[in-house]
Design a binder for these strands. Structure first.
Ligand SMILES: NC(=O)c1ccc[n+]([C@@H]2O[C@H](COP(=O)([O-])OP(=O)(O)OC[C@H]3O[C@@H](n4cnc5c(N)ncnc54)[C@H](O)[C@@H]3O)[C@@H](O)[C@H]2O)c1
Ligand SMILES: NC(=O)c1ccc[n+]([C@@H]2O[C@H](COP(=O)([O-])OP(=O)(O)OC[C@H]3O[C@@H](n4cnc5c(N)ncnc54)[C@H](O)[C@@H]3O)[C@@H](O)[C@H]2O)c1
Lengths: 211, 211
DNA sequence: ATTTTAATGTGAAATAATTAACAAATTTAA
DNA sequence: TTAAATTTGTTAATTATTTCACATTAAAAT
């Protein structure tokens, strides 16, 4: 089965979230244009993404919500579930731990790491913090494949290397240090400052266009 | 002057960050391929972005770092600076306030808003928290043009409407609720869960390709 | 039953973003 | 001082992503 484009994966994740909401509202079927409107995109985009999924609705009374959620899950999720570690339990790491815990049934935050002795051994939302020196064993014993990096910029490269060396296969990097990883490790970088600067730029730009 | 594509703006923000680092390291000139390597992109991409900036380096011993930082700033930043408010001082809002305060000389976090009486009146990194009922006056008096939304999902739409009504021109939305805003308001949405699900998908996918 | 209406799935077209290719210019090496 | 090597800016080509356009088909209306 074909690997989906990243953009499609992102939208499928969003579709599922909206579908879960719709289900809560008691909705059984949903039209492509309804889903599109919720997300401020076009109905064709929705249909094309679902086409890539290989799912087709047969009836023209919309897509069966429950079934669609299931189909998206089959494609996006790992059936056995995947385990995640938060690396760096500072402000952002702690916020993320609260936030992600229990959020998705197939994504489990099972550990966190830090070097601060004041953090090691503590627990946030049932997630225990380990010393980075215990990383190797912990990743192995808890079968962790994904690391969320919220460490200071200065340690970013070193931490990334260590994660990779210890078998992590996906890194979600919140530090603003661009990382390089081997081709078999998936790297997602997110830079909030860049996004904020983008907002600022367009606000400025819109303002000057109005004049 | 032409409005830059969003992607280019993002990269310019990144270039500037790297250039500031280079400057700290005492580097006076930098080649397009050096900048590219740091960011894991191609040198052509860098040159093309700088071309859109309208800046050309004349000499072939690289771009003068200091000058380039200045040129990027001239294009991206508002000369007078822009003021930002954090809306929703929970886990994420608080982390962001610490993080963003003083980070960029032209972006000032000057206020935060909440409805929790326990939060109103408190100060984080010199940023005072106001009641949402004081939003109108505060936005006006402090000349706030950008709002960072870190409120619970349930209040997202209502808060966005209020921000827009009170004159905010840019919204950076961290809730996972897709928002609709008038065309003169710039909206940037960021959904961490979607990014994490994307990482998870590709980790799963890479694993199955290896088999 | 027909007819009309409304949705879907998808090839083809359009648009956006990236990369290749290379002439022009400058630096460095000889 | 000349030749070789680098680096830049930019046009053209390529690739990725989105939208258009429409045939097909189910559902609703007549
Ligand atoms: N706070 C935010 O809202 C925010 C937003 C965007 C990006 N970031 C980035 O996220 C990162 C963390 O930000 P923060 O505000 O949470 O910082 P923080 O200082 O609050 O937290 C960093 C944590 O990492 C730990 N740490 C330090 N070195 C480590 C190592 N080698 N291994 C493991 N843990 C280590 C520290 O003990 C601390 O607990 C930074 O790189 C920052 O640029 C933060
Ligand atoms: N915590 C994270 O790491 C994280 C990550 C991604 C997305 N988010 C999203 O960010 C938002 C905030 O998350 P959080 O973990 O910080 O939640 P939180 O509950 O810790 O904080 C929410 C804050 O908003 C305030 N609030 C509630 N209603 C409000 C209103 N109408 N106006 C102003 N303030 C109001 C609350 O008093 C509280 O202080 C949520 O939508 C969440 O989905 C959080």
């Amino acid at each position: 089965m074909e690997t989906l484009p990243g953009k499609t994966v992102e939208r499928l994740s969003q579709y599922r979230r909206r579908l879960l909401n719709s289900l809560d509202d008691g909705k059984e079927y949903i039209f492509s244009h309804e889903l599109a409107e919720i997300l401020n995109i076009t109905a064709v985009q929705v249909r094309r993404d679902l086409m890539l999924l290989g799912y087709s609705s047969v009836y023209r009374k919309g897509y069966p919500v429950r079934k669609l959620i299931e189909v998206i899950g089959k494609r996006l999720d790992s059936s056995k579930g995947q385990n995640v570690a938060i690396v760096g339990m500072g402000n952002l790491g702690t916020a993320l731990t609260y936030y992600l815990s229990g959020l998705r049934p197939k994504l489990h935050v099972v550990a966190s790491f830090d070097i601060d002795p004041g953090k090691i051994g503590t627990t946030v939302e049932g997630v225990k913090c380990y010393s980075v020196s215990e990383m190797k064993e912990t990743i192995k014993s808890k079968n962790i494949s994904i690391g969320v990096m919220t460490v200071p910029q200065a340690s970013a490269k070193e931490v990334a290397k260590e994660l990779v060396n210890n078998g992590i296969k996906g890194i979600f990097n919140f530090t603003h240090i661009p990382l390089t990883v081997p081709p078999d490790v998936y790297l997602e970088e997110y830079d909030m400052l860049t996004s904020l600067e983008k907002v600022a730029y367009f606000v400025k730009e819109f303002a000057s266009l109005r004049k």
